[in-house]
Design a protein around this nucleic acid. Structure first.
Length: 451
DNA sequence: TTTTGAGTTGTTCGA
DNA sequence: GTCGAACAACTCAAA
């Protein structure tokens, strides 16, 4: 009678889970599967409170979906996993492949310590429709430009999603820690777990994708985007499960492309793990940024949402309030930090990673690099977001900024994105702009020309 | 090997 | 208000 361990990491679901299916197959009809999650201090330490809280809730839901059989163990995986495998007499350990810089190192270590006791670490599936490193150019390397990557990625294709196994025998009586208590978070997190993810996807589809191409840019609309990012991050839903629902319309193609961006950046990070901390484009690394203690007040004004630019402040307050920010607004606030305040993109990226519930290293760091002009896109240096223009175009009535900045409640839509021009004066409690955009734009252009 | 076409998401200015 | 041009050159991917 065989026993197999399935080690959950960023794939907290039972449906369409290849590693789980492999574990069930390895255990055989009379064997048992030990589902486990390792409380890895290195991962828990790096995630901010919102992400830890969401993870804990996902674990509670996962545990419930398997009748309370989830085995939770604290400690570094390289000792915890072999100890558990030996304890339950497992013949194999199964997991989804992790392609991140830390995950690869961790899994190499675990594979080695498992091999020492004669057990295989078997990796099946990943968090991506097409695993990073799979799609390559004719020269055999990774793509550096999105469009050709997307073409090759679509051409490669992916398997249809599969249902959860119905015949799992979860192992009984394995000692387990309790799922830890979640940290106290003041923000409003999305409902966690596989069922919530499926429900969120269903709601998004029922609303209809017809005008997604337009609506996805509108932070004032509550349902303009799928809001599935945290679920994709923790694998409570797999991108395959979404791709399988998409047809050939323009908007469906657009949503497919958005999923492709996530896969592109994972692929880029796989080929260039150093770009999690450093510029992808070596030449751009030399860009002049402001440093030193004098920048702290500017950074704090940005982080706390008191720059005086409504769309920037609304975004930064949404980050604290929901641990999530609309993607259009992420670009606007990032552009402001980098091109109006002239601060290093890594500083903003780190802040995002601490506060986002969906904080994904590849998407976050490369999203920031795109804005900073240091990334894969040969971004024209003159692409500098104007916070007023962007606000007026994508939040035309000011509903979004008023939702997050109560001080603007009484400001007419004509002035809501530039309240300093309101003849009635600035509303009480709201600051004037901390920068002159036209001046700082020229300064940013000067610094880029210097390269 | 060489050549060619293309590159998510913008802004401003002047006609 | 709308529209096209200019804002640089360079690297990538594929023929």
């Amino acid at each position: 009678m065989a026993t197999a361990v399935v080690w959950f990491r960023r794939d907290l679901r039972l449906s369409d889970n290849p590693a789980l299916l492999e574990a069930v197959a390895a255990a055989g009809p009379d064997g048992a599967v030990v589902p486990c999650f390792v409380l890895d201090p290195r991962l828990l330490g790096a995630a901010g409170a919102p992400r830890v809280a969401f993870l804990v809730r996902c674990l509670q839901e996962l545990d419930r979906s398997m009748g309370g059989h989830l085995v939770v163990r604290p400690g570094p995986p390289a000792t915890t996993i072999p100890a558990l495998a030996a304890e339950v007499g497992a013949t194999s350990v199964h997991a989804a492949e992790d392609f991140g810089p830390y995950g690869r190192q961790r899994d190499d270590d675990v594979a080695r310590t498992l091999a020492d006791v004669g057990i295989d670490l078997q990796l099946d599936g990943s968090a991506y429709a097409v695993p990073p490193g799979t799609v390559t150019t004719a020269a055999g390397g990774g793509y550096k430009v999105f469009t050709p990557f997307a073409r090759a990625w679509r051409g490669h294709g992916w398997p249809e999603p599969v249902l959860a196994p119905s015949n799992v025998r979860w192992a009984e009586g394995v000692a387990s820690d309790r799922v830890p208590d979640e940290p106290v978070v003041a923000c409003d997190l999305p409902a966690a777990g596989e069922q919530a993810a499926q429900a969120a996807a269903r709601r998004f589809w029922e609303r209809g994708l017809d005008d997604y191409d337009e609506r996805r840019n509108r932070p004032d609309l509550p349902d303009g985007t799928s809001r599935l990012s945290a679920h994709l991050k923790y694998g409570t839903i797999h991108p395959r499960q979404l791709l399988a629902l998409l047809g050939r319309s323009r908007s469906e193609g657009r949503f497919r492309t958005e999923l492709c961006w996530r896969e592109f950046y994972a692929d880029v990070l796989f080929h260039r793990p150093d770009t999690a901390r450093r510029s992808f484009n070596e030449k751009m690394a030399a860009i002049e940024v402001d440093t030193g203690p004098s920048t702290d007040e500017r950074f704090a004004a940005w982080a706390e949402g008191r720059t005086g630019f409504p769309i920037v402040d609304a975004g930064m307050r949404q980050l604290r309030g929901e641990a999530w920010v609309h993607n259009r607004v992420r670009m606007i606030v990032a552009s402001f930090l980098v091109k109006d305040l002239h601060l290093d993109w890594t500083r903003g990226a780190r802040w995002f990673m601490t506060h986002l519930v969906d904080g994904d290293l590849a998407s976050n760091q490369h999203g920031w690099q795109w804005t900073a002009g240091t990334g894969t896109d040969p971004s024209p240096y003159f692409r500098i977001f104007n916070p007023v223009t962007q606000g007026e175009r994508f939040d035309p009535d000011g509903d979004y900024v008023r939702r997050w900045i109560p001080e603007l409640a009484g400001v007419d839509r004509r002035w809501v994105h530039h309240p300093w021009d309101d003849p009635a004066g600035l509303p009480a409690g709201y600051p004037g702009p901390i920068a002159d955009h036209a001046v700082e734009r020229e300064e940013a252009l000067r610094r880029y020309r210097g390269l």
